[in-house]
Design a protein around this nucleic acid. Structure first.
Length: 489
DNA sequence: TGAAATGTTGGGGCG
DNA sequence: ACGCCCCAACATTTC
């Protein structure tokens, strides 16, 4: 059986370095058949449009990287329950390795498949490539999953020592013959008519090389100022690693190691400059901690994407307001910082985190629209759409989630704009019709005198909308609505 | 990982 | 000089 290959089933681990399933396959010395199975979306959380685009590019990149090592990526479609056994049969493989996914549907699928394979005397082993720690291993002293971030983080900080695995060898052992593979282009993951992905292509380089480049660029340029600039959408102050992380083009252990390694290097220098790097590194790793926290939450509360974590929010009197929803989605609310964010999302498949909080607060609290509506829109439009992150973050803003923002925390879009986009550069970039408005009025154009508007080539209600709600009144309305469910808290 | 309302203080104008 | 009022500026509390 020396020639019987091992199948490495790629899923959300589209990388070669620090890939435990691939490393385990290599350790067997057997030929390796790397495979990816595209499952038809039959759930509420089928791949969104932006994710499909990214996946195409990422699979293409993975295939290219494998081909540089004398291997290739075998593509199949259909239910994994059928496609995987078929591939095992065709290749004569008796072993399949994969890295775990932690979404409820994926856990159910993998559990089912593993049992089926064991039944058929096929060796099936899974590994952890996606998280710093397995969700079932991080617990409070009472042996409960953490519900509050800060104590979770304290524990995680101490627990995390693991180093990433290195690069695979220059050549992967290939099978005597390659099984049939689909043609990636036939999957139609990329948009064609119309091709709306131009803005995405301009910003992103999906794949492992792109992920590594982002990480290096972040550490070299933005990390020092991370604490000061992370909330500034007008700067490149964040890592922008989220889509790479979601697809597993880079793993959290690799990022952790790169940041900590960089810190030690700076500290050894013994100069003053090492201090801010330490603080910055800590602040950034904390965000990696939030990612970990949300994935653990979803593991322990599989209902997180669909139902309020705090049950009293089930009775919240949400508004069904198609017109306002459409204005929000298109970036036509009349609040420049909100509109800039929604248009950045539409154009680039991504939105700065600070602005995500602002637009989410606006949808939930100013428009009183159900957080699940926003969750679905983000799911379809974000290149980093991630079930755990998306669900936990929307519930965080709504106030219904674990360790969530208190319900009365309502963002004022004008103040948020002035504070985090002080020069209006972000608004001007994504809301070009406001480009010539002075900084003094850029976040509240309706307060500008008529001559100022005219001078900027603006006609409110025509070239740019008036605010679709009055924030002051919307805030009062939201507080009343929240009051109505408070009794059940 | 807010914002608004309310409370307190202290400087300066003014009778 | 003194008390009174006004109102920033800052602090606290409330939502």
């Amino acid at each position: 059986m020396a020639d019987a290959p091992v199948i490495v089933w790629f899923r959300q681990d589209l990388r070669l370095a620090d890939n435990p399933a691939l490393a385990a396959a290599l350790a067997t010395g057997a030929p390796i058949v790397p495979a990816f199975i595209l499952e038809y979306g039959d759930s509420a959380w089928a791949l969104g449009g932006a994710s499909r685009w990214w996946l195409h590019r990422s699979l293409d990149a993975l295939d290219a990287a494998l081909r540089q090592r004398g291997s290739r990526l075998v593509l199949r479609t259909g239910r994994a329950d059928d496609a995987l056994p078929a591939l095992l049969h065709e290749t004569g493989a008796g072993t399949v390795f994969w890295n775990r996914c932690y979404e409820p549907a994926a856990i159910a699928r993998d559990t089912r498949i593993k049992a089926m394979l064991h039944e058929a005397s096929i060796e099936a082993k899974s590994f952890n490539a996606a998280l710093l720690h397995e969700p079932w291993t991080v617990k409070t002293q009472q042996s409960e999953p953490y519900k509050v971030f800060t104590p979770f983080w304290r524990t995680l900080r101490v627990l995390t020592k693991e180093k990433p695995l290195g690069q695979p060898p220059k050549t992967l052992p290939d099978p005597a013959s390659w099984p049939r593979s689909d043609i990636l282009a036939d999957w139609s993951l990329e948009p064609a008519k119309p091709d709306w992905a131009g803005g995405l292509r301009a910003v992103w380089q999906p794949g492992e090389a792109g992920a590594q480049a982002r990480l290096r660029a972040f550490i070299d340029t933005a990390l020092v100022d991370y604490r000061e600039c992370r909330d500034r959408p007008d700067r490149i102050g964040t890592s922008r690693l989220s889509p790479h992380l979601h697809f597993g083009e880079i793993g959290p252990r690799q990022i952790w190691q790169a940041i900590v390694g960089r810190t030690e290097f700076a500290t050894n220098g013994g100069n003053e400059a090492s201090k801010p790097i330490d603080a910055a590194a800590e602040a950034f790793l904390r965000e990696l901690g939030w990612r970990e926290f949300t994935h653990h939450l979803l593991y322990h509360w599989p209902e997180l994407p669909a139902r309020a974590w705090k049950a009293n929010f089930d009775e919240f009197p949400w508004h069904d307001d198609a017109k306002s929803l459409a204005a929000w989605q298109r970036g036509l609310t009349g609040y420049p910082i909100v509109d800039a964010g929604m248009r950045e999302l539409w154009q680039t498949g991504w939105m700065h985190n600070r602005v995500r909080m602002i637009v989410a607060s606006f949808l939930i609290k100013d428009l009183l629209i159900d957080w699940r509506t926003g969750e679905k829109w983000f799911w379809d439009t974000l290149v980093d759409a991630d079930l755990a992150q998306n669900a936990a973050s929307w519930q965080w803003v709504a106030g219904s989630g674990a360790d969530a923002a208190p319900y009365f925390r309502i963002f004022n879009p004008v103040l948020q704009g002035r504070k985090f986009d002080p020069d209006g550069a972000y608004v001007r970039q994504f809301v070009p019709e406001l480009a010539h408005l002075s900084t003094a009025h850029i976040h509240a154009p309706w307060e500008a005198p008529e001559p100022v508007l005219a001078g900027a080539g603006l006609r409110l209600g025509t070239t740019y909308p008036r605010p679709i709600v009055d924030h002051k009144r919307a805030r009062e309305r939201a507080l009343e609505a929240y009051q109505s469910i408070k009794a059940g808290a």
